[in-house]
Computed example of a mutant assay.
Amino acid sequence: MAELASENLDGPRGKLIQTSMEEWEYPEDSFDLVISRLAVHYIEDIGSLFRNIHRTLKPGGQFVFSVEHPVITSTLQTSGMRTSWTVDNYFMEGYREQQWLGGTVYKYHRTIENYYSTLQQAGFAVHNLRESNPQRKYFISEETYERRRRIPLFLFLAAQSVIN
């Protein structure tokens, strides 16, 4: 994936930096937009992460990210086709483990309220929140579409850096 990204960004379009979100140095006032796709739920200290992202954004910059929906992370189950959507331990935030693709995946469950308030505490104004409501036209199988309509898989948040 890193090789393909590097090829796509070759030249003036961008530069690939391969590091963890916790270890990157976040240069101050450097970016207009930060995007994170399905990665924030792997980070233990999102308060620190969100403050770092706020610092690296130019005034008025945007932070857009997606996470596995909290109704999913509240009760992680072993891999396989999930047919039961019981939500349990929703307000018990913290560390979770899941068996997936032959290995153990480590995640952190948070409520929607926690994501929202932690963004605000870091200096962001949340201006959009969406859940993954499936659209019929994107599914070949009616069965898969109906199964996906039972529960949101992802949560999307968009926030703007409040000018200090």
Rank of each mutant, 00 (worst) to 15 (best):
L155Q: 00
S6D: 12
Q160G: 02
W85H: 15
T144P: 01
F139L: 10
Q99A: 02
Y26D: 06
Q160T: 13
T111Y: 05
Q120E: 14
D88T: 09
D88G: 02
L49K: 10
K58Y: 06
L33R: 08
K58Q: 10
N52H: 14
E25I: 08
D32T: 10
V126N: 12
D10P: 00
R96Q: 12
W85Y: 15
N114D: 09
N164W: 01
I140E: 12
V34R: 04
R37P: 00
Y138F: 15
A158R: 08
Y116R: 09
H69V: 11
G80A: 01
N133T: 13
G11P: 08
V87K: 04
F139M: 09
T78A: 06
H127T: 12
A159C: 06
E68N: 11
E93Y: 06
R147M: 12
E22L: 07
K137E: 14
L4D: 11
F154E: 07
Y42G: 03
V126I: 15
N128T: 10
V71T: 11
A159R: 04
K15Q: 11
Y106D: 06
R55P: 08
A159N: 04
R149L: 15
N133P: 00
E143M: 00
P59K: 04
N52Y: 04
Y42E: 06
Q135I: 15
L129C: 05
I163W: 03
V67H: 01
L119R: 03
N52G: 10
N128Q: 14
L153G: 14
G102K: 08
E68R: 10
A159S: 12
E113G: 14
P70M: 11
Y115V: 05
I35R: 02
L119G: 03
D32Y: 10
A39Y: 03
A122V: 08
M81K: 11
S132G: 11
R147N: 06
I72L: 05
H69S: 06
I46Q: 05
A159E: 03
V126K: 11
Q77K: 13
Y115F: 15
R110E: 00
R130Q: 15
R130H: 08
Y42W: 08
S66E: 10
T86W: 02
V67M: 02
Q77F: 01
I140L: 12
E97F: 05
V162E: 12
D29N: 15
N52K: 14
I43R: 02
L153R: 06
Q135D: 11
G14V: 08
E97V: 09
Y115C: 07
E143A: 05
F154Y: 12
S161L: 04
I17P: 05
L57Q: 02
F139S: 05
I46H: 01
G11Y: 12
R55S: 14
G103D: 06
W100F: 14
I46S: 01
